[in-house]
């Protein structure tokens, strides 16, 4: 919690303490802590002097401001039309079997969370996914095993 406080303090110095600073601050927390914990949202409410309900209400609107605990690597597989056409289902089931988690779940070691997401704008190279900020395209089951192999071996 002390770390979270420091982090939010630093973020508020960088982005300001006006209402318009809310999104950048929340994004900064997610970047460091993978999600927005109850304590972090309360601290943001305090720093910006807005109600905690408003912080939560705003955060929960956006897909990338997770208010549920997430792992170090958040995998978002595109489920929009062209990725679906190109075999998203198979990609998902491969990831599920490699990481041993289902959609919406986080691995026990808190390393991975698996989510579906709407269009990533990588349609011409689907199926696609992003892991945190990095994107991966033209996915195949083999490619998935190779990518996550590297993550699992801590090569990324």
């Amino acid at each position: 919690m002390a770390d979270t406080k420091e982090l939010i303090n630093a973020l508020s110095k960088k982005h300001g303490i006006e209402r318009k600073s809310l999104l950048p601050i929340l994004q900064g927390i997610v970047e460091k802590e993978n999600y927005l914990s109850k304590d972090s949202m309360l601290e943001v409410a305090k720093v910006l002097d807005i109600s905690a309900a408003e912080v939560y209400g705003t955060a929960s609107f956006f897909s990338f401001l997770d208010t549920k605990e997430r792992g170090q690597y958040v995998v978002r597989v595109c489920k929009s039309m062209t990725c679906d056409m190109k075999g998203k289902e198979e990609i998902l089931s491969t990831i599920e079997s490699v990481l041993k988690i289902k959609i919406g779940e986080t691995s026990q070691d808190k390393k991975f969370s698996l989510l579906e997401t709407n269009c990533l704008g990588l349609c011409e190279e689907g199926p696609a996914m992003i892991i945190n900020d990095d994107y991966f395209v033209k996915l195949t089951p083999e490619k998935i095993r190779e990518i996550f192999g590297r993550y699992l071996r801590n090569e990324i």
Partner: peptide, 18 residues
């Protein structure tokens, strides 16, 4: 501001902090 709009789309609801 105890009550807020939370979530989005089909899950949107009027709720409280978390």
């Amino acid at each position: 501001n105890a009550l807020a709009v939370t979530e989005r789309g089909k899950d949107m609801k009027i709720s409280t902090f978390m």
